[in-house]
Write a protein that binds this DNA or RNA. Structure first.
Length: 818
RNA sequence: GCGGAUGUGCCGGAGCGGUCAAACGGGACAGACUCAAAAUCUGUUGGCUUAGUGCCUACAAAGGUUCGAAUCCUUUCAUCCGCACCA
C-alpha cells in the first residue's frame, strides 16, 4: 500500500512563518553562556544562491540549532558583503547602478535564504555598502593613520588588467588574479595606501597556538607569515652601506659574489656605464620570460660592474643582477655562497664564479651542501659549529656596527588601495598646502557620489564636484582621495558589527562586542585561510590595542567546508550550464530533504558531486519518518529501545560537535529503523525528533506539535545520554537475531535453487533463549517473508519432522523450513 | 622542489589491531503487492561451495611488526590541495 507523501511545502512555510513571528532566533545578551556561530557572509551576486551556499550555510545552521538546544545563548547572524567588483561590472555591462544591482541581488538572496529555513537573527542583518556600515571602515582607517599603521608608499604592486586595479599579495594566486584564473598579474610601480600588518607579524604567528583550527590551516598561515631569523649584514659599495639579510652568517667567508634583484628600484645605481647595455638587454629578456607560463626558469644574471666589500674579511666581491632574487623580501639583495646554497651554486656554475667551501660535510662539487657542519677556511672562526658561528659572526659584526640580528617575514604589508568605485572611499584629502590630510571623524561617512561615469579608469575620478573639496585644516583647495578600500577591509570586522548593528555613535558597543565575540565557530572555504583569516586576525589585534576588544583571537574554531561540484565532478558554473538551483530542489523535495541530503553523503569538509538521487533518498526517508510519527502510538518503555537511544544520543552528539554530520545522519537513520522494528515509547520518540531537528527543523517541529506539545521544539533541550541505560548485551543479542535471519535466508535460497518452495520456518531455541526469539519473531517473519514459529527444544508439542532441534547450540537455534 | 591530505566493493563513503567479505546510502538485479507501476515492502549484489557449512581471493603496490592488520611501521606508486627561487 502506497503511503502518502507529506506536505513539505505547507509545513515548511508554516514553521518559517511561526519562527519569524515569535522571534525564536533573536539573540539577546544575557547570563547564559554565549556561543557565536558564523558563516562567512556572502557577496550578493545577481545569480542568486547556488548549491555551495545552500551547503555551507546549512552546515552553520545545523550547528547553530544544535548549540541552541544545548542551552547556549547563540548568536547566528547574516549580512551581505555587498561592496565589490561584480556590482560595478554590472554597471558597466548592463548599465545598472551598483546600488540597484546590490539591492535586487539582496532581495533575491533573502527570499532564498528564508526558504532554506536558516535560523538567522534577521534583526541584525546589514550590508557593507550602506554608508552606515562603511563609515566605520573609514573610522578604522583614520585610527590606523593615527597610529602610524596606514601609510602611502611607492612600490612595485600587483595589477590585474581585467579588474583594472591593484591587488594585495593575498589576492594573487599563483601569479594570477584571484578573480581571473586566466589573467596574469602585472607589476607596476605606483604610490598606494598600505596597512602595516607586518607590525603584528609576530603575534599573528604566535596567536595560532591559541586557536583550535585544523593543522592544515595553521600551517598554511604559518607559511604565509613565513618567519625566519637571521642576520642583517652591511656590505659596503663605494662608500655606501647596503644591507642584506641572511640566515647563514656562518657562511660569510664563502661569499664569492652578491646578487641584487633585477627588479630592485636602485639597481641602476650599481650598474656601471660599461655594463649598462648588457644590463638593459638582460632586463628586457627577463621580462619576456616572465610573461611566459610559469615553470622552472633558469637562474640568470648579469654583472653590474660594481664590487662590494665583505665586512668580515674585506674581500672585494662582484655584484650581479639576478632573476632569482625577490625584490621586496629582505633588502632585495643577497650574499651568494655557492658552496652552501643550491641557487647560488647553479648561478656560480653558469657564470664560472668561484665556489669556496667553508662548512665541512659533504663535498660541493656536484651540488651545494646546505647542512650544518664545522667551519673551515673561515679565519678566526675555524673549528666552530655552524650554530656557534652564527652567534659569533653576528656578534663580531655587531661590534663593528656592520650587522645585527634580524627577524624577517614573508608577510608583506597589506595594500588596501583600489582604483574602483564600489568600495569604501578612503577618508583623506590632498591639500595643496598641507599635503595629505585626514578627514575629521565627525565628518564621516564620506559617501560614494551617485553620479559617476563607468567605463575607463576609476569612476570616482569622473565626478569633479565630489573630488574638489576643502582642506579640513587650512580650508584651502583640496582634492579627495579617489582610491577605495579593498573589500577585505569590510569583512575584517563585520562579525563585531553584528553584535551591535544599529549603533550610530560608535563602531559597536564594547560590552556587547566582548560578550558575543570572539567567534566560537566559524565556517568557510579553505581559500580564505591565507587572506580573510589573516586580515580578520590583524584587525582584531588592532581593535584590541585601541581598547575596544578584550580578546586576542577573533576566530576560535574554523571549519573548512568542501565544494559541491556538478554530478560529473566539474565545477558548477553558468557557462557550463550545470548549475543546480537550490530553489528548484526545494520546490521538488522540500528544504528539509535538501538539507539532509547535502550533509549525508560525505564528510562536510570533503568535496562532493551533486546527485539528485541522494535528495530523493532523503525525501523518502523523511516521508517514512513523517508517516511513522504522525500516526505514532507510544509503546511501553523498553530497556532495549532505551539502550539504543542512549548510546546513539551519545554518539550523535559527538558527531555533530565534530562536524561529522554524515555519521550523525547515518545513526539517526539506523535508530529510526530500529523504532520501526521495535516500536518506541514517547520519550524515545521525542528524543528522536530532537536528534533530527538540527538537520530537518521543519518536519520535526511539525511532528513535535503533533505530539501535543505547545511550545517550540526549537526551544527544547538537547537530550543527554543516560549511560546507565546503555546495555551492550542487547547489541550482542541483535547480532544473534541477524545471524539467524541470514541463516534462514541462506537456506531458503538453497532450497529454492533446487526448485522447491518454502513458506514456513520453525525455530527451536534453548529454553533460556526462547523469549529472545519470540520477541523477534515478527522481525524474522518480515525479513524472511516466511511465517515463523518458535519452539523451545524441550517443548512436547513442537513440530520437528527432521529433528533439527538436536543441532541447537547457545546463540544458535535449530531451524526447519518447509 | 618543499609541505599537507587522501587511496576501501559498481559508485559515494564508514571502519582505524581480533567479533570484517567490510556499517549506511545510492545504483543494479530478483521477488512480493498490483491491471500496471517511476510508489511501497523483502532479498541478492567478490568467487567457488553448502539445509544454516567450508574454502579461496580481497581494503592502491611491495615488504615488515604481531598469535592476529583494511586498521601499526617502512618504501613505492597514484590523486588532490597549498607554497613555489623568501637567501
Amino acid at each position: 500500500m502506497a503511503e502518502k507523501n507529506y506536505n513539505f511545502k505547507e509545513i515548511e512555510r508554516k514553521w518559517q512563518k511561526k519562527w519569524e513571528e515569535k522571534g525564536i532566533f533573536r539573540a539577546k545578551e544575557g547570563a547564559k553562556k554565549k556561543f557565536y556561530v558564523l558563516d562567512m557572509f556572502p557577496y550578493p551576486s545577481g545569480a542568486g544562491l547556488h548549491m555551495g551556499h545552500a551547503f555551507v550555510f546549512s552546515l552553520g545552521d545545523i550547528f547553530a540549532r544544535f548549540k541552541r538546544l544545548q542551552g547556549f545563548n547563540v548568536l547566528y547572524p547574516i549580512g551581505y558583503d555587498s561592496l565589490g567588483l561584480p556590482a560595478e561590472n554590472a554597471a558597466i555591462t548592463a548599465g545598472i547602478r551598483p546600488e540597484d544591482y546590490t539591492k535586487n541581488s539582496i532581495a533575491n538572496f533573502m527570499k532564498q535564504q528564508k526558504a532554506m529555513g536558516w535560523s538567522y537573527d534577521w534583526s541584525r542583518t546589514f550590508k557593507t555598502s550602506d554608508s552606515s556600515y562603511y563609515k566605520w571602515d573609514q573610522w578604522i582607517f583614520l585610527k590606523m593613520l593615527e597610529k602610524g599603521l596606514a601609510y602611502r608608499k611607492k612600490s612595485s604592486v600587483n595589477w590585474c588588467p581585467k579588474c583594472r586595479t591593484v591587488l594585495a599579495n593575498e589576492q594573487v594566486v599563483g601569479g594570477k588574479c584571484w578573480r581571473h584564473e586566466d589573467t596574469n598579474v602585472e607589476i607596476k610601480y605606483l604610490e598606494q595606501w598600505f596597512f602595516k600588518i607586518t607590525e603584528y607579524a609576530d603575534e599573528l604567528l604566535s596567536g595560532l597556538d591559541k586557536v583550535y583550527w585544523s593543522q592544515r590551516a595553521k600551517i598554511m598561515q604559518k607559511n604565509w607569515i613565513g618567519k625566519s631569523e637571521g642576520t642583517e649584514i652591511l656590505f659596503e659599495v663605494e662608500g655606501e652601506k647596503w644591507p642584506i639579510f641572511t640566515t647563514r652568517p656562518d657562511t660569510i667567508f664563502g661569499v664569492t659574489f652578491m646578487v641584487i634583484s633585477c627588479q630592485h628600484p636602485r639597481l641602476f645605481e650599481l650598474v656601471k656605464e660599461k655594463q649598462k647595455k648588457d644590463a638593459e638587454k638582460f632586463l628586457k629578456k627577463i621580462k619576456s620570460v616572465s610573461e611566459k607560463e610559469m615553470g622552472e626558469v633558469e637562474k640568470e644574471g648579469v654583472f653590474t660592474g660594481s664590487y662590494a666589500i665583505n665586512p668580515i674579511n674585506k674581500e672585494k666581491i662582484p655584484i650581479y643582477a639576478g632573476n632569482f632574487v625577490v625584490a621586496d623580501y629582505g633588502s632585495g639583495m643577497v650574499m651568494a655562497v655557492p658552496a652552501h646554497d643550491q641557487r647560488d651554486f647553479e648561478f656560480a656554475k653558469k657564470y664560472k664564479l668561484p665556489i669556496k667551501q667553508v662548512i665541512s660535510g659533504e663535498n660541493v662539487k656536484e651540488k651545494a651542501y646546505a647542512g650544518a657542519g664545522i667551519l673551515i677556511n673561515s679565519g678566526e672562526f675555524n673549528g666552530l659549529s655552524s650554530d656557534e658561528a652564527k652567534q659569533h659572526v653576528t656578534k663580531a659584526l655587531e661590534f663593528k656596527k656592520l650587522g645585527r640580528k634580524k627577524v624577517q617575514y614573508k608577510l608583506r604589508d597589506w595594500l588596501i588601495s583600489r582604483q574602483r568605485y564600489w568600495g569604501t572611499p578612503i577618508p583623506v584629502v590632498y591639500c595643496e598646502k598641507c599635503g595629505i590630510v585626514p578627514i575629521p571623524e565627525k565628518e564621516l561617512p564620506i559617501k560614494l557620489p551617485e553620479h559617476v561615469k563607468f567605463g575607463k579608469g576609476n569612476p570616482l575620478e569622473t565626478n569633479e564636484k565630489w573630488i574638489n573639496t576643502k582642506c579640513p585644516k587650512c580650508k584651502g583647495k583640496a582634492r579627495r582621495e579617489t582610491d577605495t578600500m579593498d573589500t577585505f577591509a569590510n569583512s575584517s570586522w563585520y562579525y563585531l558589527r553584528y553584535t551591535d548593528p544599529k549603533n550610530k555613535k560608535r563602531i559597536f558597543d564594547t560590552k556587547k562586542a566582548n560578550y558575543w565575540a570572539p567567534i566560537d565557530q566559524y565556517i568557510g572555504g579553505p581559500e580564505h585561510i591565507t587572506a580573510h583569516l589573516i586580515y580578520i586576525r590583524f584587525y582584531a589585534k588592532f581593535l584590541r590595542d585601541l581598547g575596544l576588544l578584550k580578546f586576542d583571537e577573533p576566530v576560535l574554531k574554523y571549519f573548512t567546508q568542501g565544494i559541491v561540484h556538478a554530478s560529473n565532478g566539474e565545477k558548477m558554473s553558468k557557462s557550463k550550464g550545470n548549475v543546480i538551483e537550490p530553489l528548484d530542489t526545494i520546490n521538488k523535495y522540500g528544504t528539509d530533504s535538501l538539507r539532509l541530503a547535502l550533509v549525508s553523503s560525505a564528510s562536510p569538509d570533503k568535496n562532493t558531486n551533486w546527485d539528485e538521487n541522494i535528495v530523493l533518498g532523503s525525501y523518502k526517508f523523511l516521508n517514512n519518518f513523517y508517516n511513522y510519527f504522525s500516526s505514532f502510538n507510544p509503546g511501553k518503555k523498553d530497556a532495549r529501545v532505551e539502550s539504543k537511544v542512549n548510546s546513539f544520543v551519545r554518539e550523535i552528539t559527538e558527531d555533530i560537535e565534530n562536524f561529522q554530520y554524515n555519521l550523525a545522519v547515518i545513526k539517526i537513520r539506523q535508530l529510526f529503523s530500529f523504532f520501526q522494528e521495535k516500536g518506541a515509547d514517547k520519550l524515545s520518540a521525542e528524543i528522536m525528533l530532537k536528534l533530527l531537528y538540527p538537520f530537518c527543523p521543519h518536519i520535526t517541529e511539525e511532528l513535535w506539535q503533533k505530539f501535543g506539545n505547545k511550545s517550540f521544539l526549537s526551544l527544547q533541550k538537547w537530550p543527554e545520554a543516560d549511560e546507565k541505560k546503555i546495555n551492550e548485551q542487547f547489541e550482542k543479542e541483535e547480532k544473534v537475531i541477524d545471524d539467524i535471519i541470514n541463516d534462514i535466508n541462506n537456506v531458503v535460497r538453497i532450497i529454492k535453487d533446487k526448485g522447491k518452495n518454502v513458506s514456513k520456518v520453525y525455530i527451536y531455541s534453548l529454553p533460556n533463549e526462547l523469549k529472545l526469539y519470540e520477541s523477534y519473531s515478527d522481525a524474522i517473519e518480515k525479513r524472511t517473508g516466511l511465517s515463523a514459529k518458535v519452539y523451545a527444544v524441550n517443548a512436547k508439542d513442537k513440530y520437528d519432522p527432521e529433528n533439527k532441534s538436536k543441532k541447537v547450540k547457545p546463540g544458535k537455534p535449530g531451524i526447519y523450513l518447509e
